[in-house]
Write a protein that binds this DNA or RNA. Structure first.
Length: 492
RNA sequence: GCCGCGUUCGUCUAGCCUGGCCUAGGACACUGCUCUUUCAAGGCAGCGACACGGGUUCAAAUCCCGUACGCGGUACCA
């Protein structure tokens, strides 16, 4: 049974890198008919942010990545908040201590700082609390047992550290990178239990993955270096480690991990909710993110969540970091927008319209506008932003548009008015309006644009825009002709 | 610094495991053409890459070694 988990810490909004990690976990689970679990890694009480968990849940739901077990959706192995599992870890910590794989340490943070200072001065560039250093620190390995017991009874503050062996090669297989090995002498005696009684990530994630029957750990590459510590823990606890797969990082266009700071500098929205607020299509974001570090192996670019699920495999994940390409995301969004039915976009467009104060617009009217605009917009809000003339008379004409009103435009537009006035309200349709223009171009021997361009300017105030004749039809005879008469006055 | 991981067009990638089919394919972006009532979209074309150096081999983007560069880690953060 495949069981994977997405285990974010609730320190803020779910960022785009986290979403991709969640996506890969989701795809792997679904591909294998397995379970996708959400676990909240809130062992650092100081970094916890109000509302973060809800944001994560909402973001996953918006993206279509609903989990099978997690907060608010209890399975058999909960709770799904590590802070609520605090008591569970104690047992394993005791076991490790008893088996001499962990020990109590009473050093204050000042003392540890001093140790680091001292070692640095003597030429050690990266001082560690390790098999050598621990011999000169205050811990249950160096102190007489009765003193250790006294301290514990007194309630003195302590942490529990992993007793990393002095010389040992730790080798494990990563599904993405193949065999990876580390020398234990490069590791430090990682704190497992903090002085506030909370486990560190390293302990909690190993214990929870085991207790929750996680079969595959799919997480970011930033965890690769701490995996050997986790492997040691599995070994000491006598557990079979899950399959490991470390994902390449999402990089900023300027290089380096795409951090919040960098993203902001480069104008890239970093949180999932930002994309939701910008009104991107979640399918587009998902498709784009899936392709950042993975590919189906052929030339397909557009894949639905179902298709991604069908095709997904860990073997096809890339090893190197992928730069976030905002323009490509926009291209994806355009592709998905074009495919949507106008009805599917209606609710969102209506909201956008209301924001501009166009709140008494009928669905029927909106449904006429959407098809005209959706194929040329990058995001849904542009339908209204770029199509304001559908709701209000253009206040002024674009500078660029005015240039398209030429010397002979007056005459041609007047002729158009004469012809179109003859058309009845019910016959005021795109084809008939276009026919009128056609007749004028024939009779005056001018190009189509000669007539159409001034009309566009008159009706929309813009020199660009959707197909002109349906636009005029949608506006209706009265409105369209009023605008044309006004343009004749102002531009003529 | 040390440890680990990585390196194919500007970017995302296919190809690498199982050397020859690679004159290295696709997508985004960019440029031009085309279509067209405009701007887009679409169609067509162009630009553009195997980091470098050694091996191994009849043959290397593909296998091996080294160098350079990039990234990650180096906390009582995850």
């Amino acid at each position: 049974m495949v069981r994977v988990r997405f285990a974010p810490s609730p320190t803020g909004k779910l960022h785009i890198g986290g979403l991709r990690t969640a996506l890969y976990n989701f795809l792997y689970a679904r591909h294998h008919d397995g379970d996708f679990i959400l676990r909240i890694e809130d062992t650092d009480q100081t970094r916890k942010k109000e509302g973060a968990v809800q944001d994560i849940i909402d973001a996953l739901h918006w993206a279509g990545l609903d989990f099978d077990e997690g907060p608010g959706k209890e399975g058999d192995v909960g709770p799904y908040y590590q802070s609520e599992r605090k008591d569970l870890y104690k047992k394993y910590v005791d076991q490790l201590i008893e088996q001499d794989h962990a020990y109590y340490a009473f050093d204050t943070s000042e003392e540890i700082d001093q140790m680091r200072e001292r070692l640095k001065k003597s030429g050690n560039p990266s001082p560690k609390y390790d098999s050598i250093t621990r011999q000169s620190m205050k811990n249950s390995l160096t102190m007489p047992q009765d003193e250790v017991e006294r301290k514990l009874e007194n309630g003195d503050e302590y942490v529990v550290r992993l007793k990393v062996p002095r010389r040992e090669t730790i080798r494990f297989e990563d599904e993405v990178r193949g065999y990876v090995s580390f020398e234990s002498k490069g590791l430090d005696d990682q704190v497992l239990l903090k002085s506030d009684g909370m486990p560190t990530y390293h302990l909690a994630n190993v214990v929870d993955d085991h207790l929750m029957n996680i079969s595959h750990v799919i997480r970011g590459e930033e965890w690769l270096s701490s995996t050997p510590k986790h492997m040691l823990l599995y070994e000491y606890l006598g557990w079979e480690p899950p399959v490991m797969a470390h994902l390449p990082l999402i990089m900023s266009p300027s290089g380096g991990k795409l951090s919040k700071r960098k993203a902001e500098q480069e104008g890239i929205p970093i949180n999932t909710v930002d994309y939701r607020e910008l009104d991107y299509e979640p399918e587009a974001l998902i498709n784009f993110l899936a392709m950042l570090g993975w590919s189906p192996g052929d030339d397909r670019e557009i894949l639905s969540l179902d298709e991604l699920t069908e095709e997904f495999s860990l073997e096809r994940i890339n090893k190197s970091g992928a730069v976030f390409n905002y323009k490509k995301l926009n291209w994806y969004n355009e592709q998905y927008m074009k495919e949507k039915s106008p009805e599917a976009l209606l609710d969102r467009v209506r909201e956008d319209a209301a924001e501009f104060g166009f709140d008494e617009v009928s669905d029927d009217y909106l449904l006429q506008i959407i098809p005209l605009m959706q194929e040329r917009a990058t995001r849904v809000p542009e339908i209204i932003e770029e199509g304001r003339f559908f709701f209000e008379e253009p206040e002024e004409y674009d500078e660029q548009a005015i240039k398209k009103w030429k010397d002979d435009s007056d005459e041609l537009v007047k002729r158009f008015l004469e012809k179109v006035e003859q058309i009845s309200e019910t016959e005021f349709e795109a084809a008939n309006i276009k026919q009128a223009v056609k007749e004028i171009t024939d009779e005056k021997g001018v190009g189509f644009g000669k007539v159409a361009m001034p009309l566009r300017v008159a009706v929309t105030g813009q020199g660009y825009g959707p197909d002109l004749f349906p636009t005029i039809e949608v506006l209706g005879k009265e409105t369209a002709l009023d605008r044309i008469r006004r343009a004749l006055q102002e531009l003529g």
